[in-house]
């Protein structure tokens, strides 16, 4: 096959599109802005192997050119295309159409815990403000030979949390803020608890993160319902490996008589 032949046959570059498996789906997509909005119906073609984001693109290209949606990588690595699919927070790019109930309507709405900007796009600036409130990583000095030495097993604990792609679905689903706007001020949310946990477990960090988590970021408000863990597309064990160990350390510190008597609060405990 020469290139010229393939030029006449665009399919040559996309073999595998088996149109016999295509079907027409009914989508309900929330359209609107900060003031008003409603679900709108779209009847749209679905092909074999497609994900919800493909369908949103098709609606956008053919039926609603101005439909607002965030996305970047379309491979589950950037965390931009978070939305609620049939009421469940999901990455649209990682939700295969074949995984949804066949024949049923697909309802796509914006994340509920954040103010809507337009259509599926929400104002997630809450998260960027919270990020600014976390004191920066502060490493201890390098070793005499100019290196930092860390064991793989010690970096792996923090690496689990650094897999976070900041899709903010854990923030969206957390009941402390999902229906309680008033809690946002004093509650950083699961994404930032694992950020604090990650820094706390970082072999090189010298800042004290534990009391900070409790006193400034509302760790105590979390009552471990694990909703965040359930929605995490990176399968980070947010509650078990992040929040609970952090809570335990805080408790150890708070009720340690030595800390109380001597007023020690700055020393970092490494296990």
């Amino acid at each position: 096959m020469t290139i010229t032949e393939s030029a006449n046959n665009p399919k040559a570059f996309a073999p595998g599109v088996d149109k016999s498996k295509s079907y027409q789906a009914n989508f309900k997509v929330w359209r609107g802005n900060s003031e008003t909005g409603a679900l709108q119906d779209y009847s749209v073609e679905v092909n074999d192997g497609e994900v919800v984001l493909d369908i949103i693109f098709r609606i956008q290209a053919d039926q609603a050119n101005d439909m607002a949606v965030r996305w970047n990588c379309k491979a589950g690595k950037c965390g931009s295309c978070s939305a609620e699919i049939n009421g469940r927070p999901r990455l649209m790019c990682m939700t295969r159409m074949s995984a949804l109930p066949p024949g049923e309507e697909v309802v796509v709405t914006p994340m509920r815990a954040f103010p809507v900007i337009k259509d599926l796009v929400t104002d997630v600036s809450f998260n960027y403000e919270k990020a600014k409130q976390i004191p920066a990583f502060a490493p201890k000095p390098r070793e005499a030979d100019g290196t930092y030495r860390m064991q793989q097993i010690d970096v792996e604990r923090g690496q689990e949390f650094r897999k976070c792609i900041e899709c903010f679905m854990c923030q969206n689903v957390c009941h402390v803020v999902r229906d309680h706007e008033e809690n946002k001020k004093s509650f950083a949310g699961p994404r930032f608890f694992i950020r604090l946990a990650e820094l706390d477990m970082h072999p090189l960090d010298t800042n004290d993160r534990q009391m900070l988590a409790q006193e400034k970021h509302g760790l105590g408000m979390c009552n471990i319902t694990k909703c965040c863990t359930e929605v995490c597309p990176e399968h980070i064990k947010i509650t078990d490996n992040g929040i609970i160990p952090l809570k335990e350390r805080v408790v150890d510190r708070k009720y340690d008589p030595l800390f109380k008597i001597l007023g020690l609060s700055k020393k970092k405990t490494n296990d």
């Binding site: 595998g16 192997g49 497609e50 994900v51 379309k74």
Partner: peptide, 8 residues
């Protein structure tokens, strides 16, 4: 494959 992720 699938076609929708072709290129990733």
């Amino acid at each position: 494959w699938p076609p929708s992720v072709r290129g990733i």
